[in-house]
Design a protein around this nucleic acid. Structure first.
Length: 270
DNA sequence: TCTGCATGAAAAA
DNA sequence: TTTTCCTGCAGAG
């Protein structure tokens, strides 16, 4: 489920599993053979996530600054699988395998998977907006774009050069929680509304990293307020087309917007 | 077991 | 705005 929270979890998983280790890198599928050859036998000396982009740094030794970064964007289908011990025989389209002496990871179906230089990595992150999960995030950069834009806030939130790491779930859910109509132009949001929206994104994404899944409902708005959150109780509007809004019971709306499905409550979001 | 949809985004048109 | 990449899952049967 690759929105920003998932990618940050992957960065952490790579760090704990492979950080400082010498890795064998290959590409059973063959599509990444040249890149894998560059990294094979190197040490993973750094890991980083920015929005939906994952960067794994490779160097001659653990204390070296990375000379090559493996840059991965999962897109809609991409997945990482981790395991302990010896790696299984690769089945199907495995783009990359990372193998240490006691663990392995497999990457399938990514939108992007390439080896980049430090400069190229900087160029990629320079094109991205602030990531609510990063300490160094500067929300005023996003605020400035939003405040100037006639585009609806629902479309702006999906733009990775405005806010990095937000996908269709966090877009729908954060705007519901804020009570904001996704079609409202960015420049019609007050400063306080933007600040609250950003702060809520930080809360929601951080919670997503902790849980490993996206849960946006407040306990009192769930059918079962206590205990583990069931899948059907996790969201306010996302994938709840036609079901009654948890707050006002009006049927949830779904309509395509720029190729994606926008979910909203027309009554709660103004 | 089968079917269709999905958390993304670049490229084509 | 449409197509493509090509995986995992939920729901139907």
């Amino acid at each position: 489920m690759p929105e920003g929270h998932t990618v940050h979890r992957h960065a952490r998983a790579h760090r704990t599993t492979f950080g400082g280790r010498t890795l064998a890198v290959d590409s059973p599928q063959g599509r990444f053979a040249a890149g894998a050859a560059l990294l094979d036998g190197q040490v993973m000396s750094a890991t980083q996530a920015w929005g939906k982009h994952l960067f794994l740094g490779f160097a001659p030794g653990p204390r070296y600054r990375p000379r090559h970064w493996l840059h991965v964007h999962l897109g809609l289908y991409g997945t990482w699988r981790f395991g302990a011990g010896a790696p299984p025989e690769p089945r199907g389209a495995v783009r990359v395998r990372l193998i240490s002496d006691d663990a392995w990871a497999e990457l399938r179906g990514p939108t992007a998977c390439d080896v980049v230089t430090p400069d190229e990595k900087d160029a990629i992150t320079a094109r991205l907006g602030p990531d609510p999960l990063r300490e160094d995030a500067d929300p005023s950069r996003a605020a400035a774009v939003v405040a100037r834009s006639r585009t609806g806030i629902g479309a702006l939130l999906m733009r990775q050069d405005v806010v990095a790491g937000i996908g269709n779930v966090y877009r729908a859910e954060s705007l519901f929680r804020a009570g904001i109509d996704p079609y409202r132009p960015g420049r019609d949001l007050s400063g306080a509304e933007w600040d609250a929206l950003w702060d809520d994104l930080v809360v929601l994404l951080s919670d997503g990293v902790r849980r490993g899944s996206i849960v946006t409902t407040r306990p009192e708005d769930r059918e079962r307020p206590r205990g583990a959150v069931r899948r059907v109780d996790a969201h306010y509007v996302y994938r709840r087309t036609g079901l009654p809004c948890r707050v006002c019971a009006t049927p949830v709306l779904a309509e395509p917007l720029a190729g994606r499905t926008l979910y909203r409550c027309a009554v709660c979001q103004r």
